[in-house]
Simulated assay, not measured.
Amino acid sequence: MLEIGWLTWALTIGLIVALLAVDLVIAAVRPHRVGFGEATAWSVFYVLVAIGFGVWFASVHGGSFGAEYFAGYIVEKSLSVDNLFVFVIIMTTFAVPEEHQHKVLTFGIVLALVMRAIFIAVGATLLSLFSFMFLLFGLLLLFTAVQLFRHRDEDPDVENNVVVKVARRVLPVTDEYAGGKLLTRVDGRRVVTPLFVVLVAIGGVDLLFALDSIPAVFGVTEEAYIVFAANAFALLGLRALFFLVKGLLDRLVYLSAGLAVILAFIGVKLILHWAHVDLDDRVPEVPTSVSLGVILVILVIVVVASLIKTKGDPTAKAHPGSLRASASEPSESKPKN
């Protein structure tokens, strides 16, 4: 059992808040187009911070907990890349100017951290009280994996997202971005800008991803502190990673299928853990080291296979995948022209 004092929690949260504050200040004070060099520098910095934290954590609390942190971090980092696909779609759908994309991403990361912190607290409490929650989490991940694999070649329909549709219906929205403001005045009337609707869309996406990613990382570790740290450090680098790899995302054509396999694997791992605890202790469990190895192998295969595919077929394009068929897709029951 991992023992984490209030001071360690406070210092960890303080470090994360400080890093987020730097991002917010840069986005607010100096809105600009983020170039490749700047994105690379920030990406390397955040990866080094995450690795440094993991090394410190392993040295203080032991290699076993350190392995759980790194496994959780890799799971969340791989799932966060799928977030980037959806962020690109949202930015394109709403034609967000490049100088404001930095701000949108930073606010999106803040929303994601808040939502995931809530889910982590709820999930940790449920797991500590009811062991059958491991079964429910496992079944949820298996369902998500099947749906994601079935719709791996689709894009989520942002415009038909219920949250976005409600926001457009309820709130007066101007056509101009108004210098990156969330609220402005038109003819003396206070209205929201498209940037506000973009944040609403990203918030809705963050909620959906939290529903998947939190059970996934709990499949690697039961420790709430490790779950929180893995999520936080994976998300902190998301803003820089967006500007670094957004030109390469189209080439990761097998990423959604790979993530589906990873989610299915973790789902089975959770179900085996539940069976081991509640049914029969002879039911085998999957060690963290094996989980880490399987996840890394799947990711390597996905990246290599994707690059080979797109090299041989330049027209091949990656999609983030969806948990349900797009409303714009023709129904299979309808005749095709």
Rank of each mutant, 00 (worst) to 15 (best):
L263H: 10
V110R: 08
A112G: 11
I16C: 07
I226Y: 02
L79Q: 05
Q147I: 07
L15Q: 01
A18Q: 05
D153A: 14
K311P: 00
Y177M: 05
I301L: 14
G54E: 03
F85T: 00
L270M: 14
E99K: 13
L135F: 15
K336Q: 14
P287Y: 03
K311S: 14
F94W: 02
L139S: 11
R150D: 08
V55Q: 03
I271H: 06
D187I: 04
F36T: 13
Y225D: 04
L195E: 03
F218H: 02
V110S: 10
F149C: 02
F130Y: 14
E223H: 14
V110D: 05
S322R: 08
T174M: 02
P330A: 07
V88R: 10
S289C: 00
A201W: 01
S328I: 08
T8H: 15
S256L: 00
V60I: 15
V290F: 09
R251E: 07
V294G: 01
F143E: 13
G37I: 05
W274S: 06
V302I: 02
A71C: 15
G179R: 09
V22E: 15
V25K: 15
K181G: 00
F149I: 08
F137V: 05
L105R: 00
L211V: 15
V96K: 01
F36L: 12
K334G: 07
L126T: 10
V110T: 11
L199P: 02
V96Y: 01
P215G: 07
I74Y: 10
G219S: 07
P215E: 06
G267H: 03
F134D: 08
A316Q: 10
V227R: 01
A50H: 05
L129S: 13
V283G: 06
